[in-house]
Each structure stands twice: as C-alpha cells, then as structure tokens.
C-alpha cells in the first residue's frame, strides 16, 4: 500500500476502512479457494498417511513395490524425453517467430495459438485416426508398398511421446517467445560486427540471454508432462502406464486410496519443489504478466 498518495490527516479513519475493504477483496477469493481447493489438496495429503493405517507405509510402498517403481520409471523417462524434444523444437520455433518478418510473424503465431487451444481430446483422437493399425498412415504406406505389415505407432511409448510433444510445443513456445522479445535485437549484430560467426553469435550471446526463458519453459513443460493423464491413457494403450493414469486406476479399480494419494502427494511435492527453484530464477509477477 503506497501511503504517500493518500489524502491528508482527516481522512485517517477512512483509510483504515479502505484498507479493510482491500484486504477483504484480496482474501475472500482465498477463503473460497481454501474451502474448495486447498482443503481437497490437504485431504489428499492426509489420506496418504492415514489409509489403510496411520503412518508412512504408503510412501514406503512406493519404493518397494516393483509395479509402482516401473510406473515411476516409465513416467520419468517419458517425461524427460518428451520435455527435451518439446523444448528443443519449441526453442527453434520461438526463435524463428521472433526473428521472422512481421508479416509472417502473425501467421506463425496464429498457428501456435490454434494448436495451443485445440482440445486435448480432439488432438488425441486425430492421432489415433492417423496412426492406428488401420489408420491413414499405415494404409497409405501399405498402398504405396513401403511396408507389408502395419507399423505399431500408438499403444506404446512412442505414441505417448508423440502426443505429449505435440501438446507441449506451444507451451514451450509461448514463454520462450515472451523472453526472447525482451532481448535487445542489436546484441547479435554487434557480436557479428566484432567478428563472431553466425553460430558463435547465437551460442555466446543470444543463448545465454535467453537462458532464463529456457529454464522457466523447461520447468513449466516438465511440470505439465508429469501430470499427463489423457494422452498416455489413450495413446499408451495400457502398455506404458504413467503415474496419473496409475493413480486413477488405483483409486477407481482397486480402491487403493492410500497408495493413490501417496503417489499424488509425491507428485504435488515434486511440482512445488520445482516451482520453488523456478521462483528463484524468475519473478512470478513477471512470468505471469503482472509486472
């Protein structure tokens, strides 16, 4: 509250009332969030240490059960691969958009935004229609005689990674672009003028300047990928079950709430840990456009 701009002394009691109103405005939504959002999150944490019995048994099981370990391993490697691929392509695309001629820029941006907003279910449906054993791609390849047997594109880790990369590229592009737009466009030509090669100028000038954007995009993309549910469930075909789908199975099929919530809590803690790291690198205010 910037006290300097407030009216002079006689208004003091009114200032207190204003303060009160402002606090009420900021806090009312928080109270609502506490009742309908944070309380449910708390319930997840408490269930994980109380069902079936009080203690950390569910967390111990995460490390001892071979089924859980396999799911966690699958999730981690699929997330790492799809995040790295999404970031690499996302960086490339963001770089191209930021440096493209203005008339092209808006078309490219339009495409990225479209892809960003299209329903995850519809994109998954499209991939199934294209890539299933009797889908467009396999039929075409067979007609032109490149293959005899249909290739298994989906219902395996490849399908999951493909679907995740397709979903996450726009999520990588948008924060990267926001960061690249703040980089002074004269630096790279200056480096070139001082004798750097085109790639040298990029590697030693542009890339380091875009590092904050790259780090925040990495963390965002990785956080999203950890929680993926729809894409792995539909494109994985039960062969590469990831944590979110496994949690749903635990809760819906075997009613193992303790195990499910312990995994969910671990996911939550991991996500918050990454956010804390992120918070040290970029200010949340600037990241979410409130600066």
């Amino acid at each position: 509250m910037s006290g300097a701009a407030l009216p002079a002394a006689p208004a003091l009691p009114r200032m207190d009332r204003t303060q009160l109103i402002v606090w009420a405005m900021a806090l009312l939504p928080i109270v609502v969030l506490c009742v309908f959002y944070f309380y449910p999150l708390m319930r997840v944490l408490t269930i994980s240490v109380t069902e079936p019995e009080f203690g950390l048994g569910n967390y111990r099981d995460i490390f001892t059960s071979s089924a859980v370990r396999r799911v966690v391993q699958t999730t981690l490697w699929i997330c790492v691969v799809s995040s790295v691929v999404s970031l690499f392509f996302g960086y490339l695309l963001a770089y191209a958009i930021v440096h493209a001629a203005p008339s092209w820029q808006s078309w490219m941006l339009l495409a990225v935004l479209l892809s960003f907003w299209v329903s995850v279910l519809i994109r998954t449906f499209s991939w199934i229609a294209l890539l299933q054993t009797r889908g467009l791609v396999n039929e075409t390849l067979q007609v032109i005689g490149l293959i005899d047997e249909p290739i298994r594109f989906i219902r395996n880790p490849f399908g999951v990674i493909l679907g995740m990369v397709h979903y996450m590229i726009p999520y990588a592009v948008l924060p990267l672009m926001a960061n690249m737009r703040t980089i002074d466009t004269r630096y790279v030509p200056a480096a070139r003028g001082l004798g750097a090669s085109p790639f040298g100028a990029f590697w030693r000038v542009f890339l380091p300047l875009s590092l904050p954007g790259l780090i925040s995009a990495s963390i965002l993309v990785f956080i999203f990928s950890i929680g993926f549910y729809i894409t792995p469930a539909l494109l994985g075909g039960g062969r590469s079950t990831m944590v979110a789908e496994y949690i749903a199975l635990q809760v819906n099929e075997t009613l193992a709430w303790g195990q499910g919530t312990a995994l969910a809590s671990s996911m939550l803690i991991l996500v918050f840990a990454m956010l804390v790291v992120l918070g040290r690198i970029v200010k949340f205010r600037t990241m979410f456009g409130a600066a």
Partner: peptide, 23 residues
C-alpha cells in the same frame, strides 16, 4: 496470496481431482 491464487493452474489435475472427489 498471489502465488496461492495461481496454484490451481499448476497442480496436476489428477491430484486435485482426487481431493475434490473425497471432499
């Protein structure tokens, strides 16, 4: 408060789905 208000955006949906179901 701002960080609290932004949390629902970042928490994996499966986590709050579980909690909301119970509550």
């Amino acid at each position: 408060i701002r960080i609290l208000a932004l949390t629902p955006m970042i928490v994996p949906p499966i986590v709050h789905a579980l909690g909301m179901y119970r509550v």
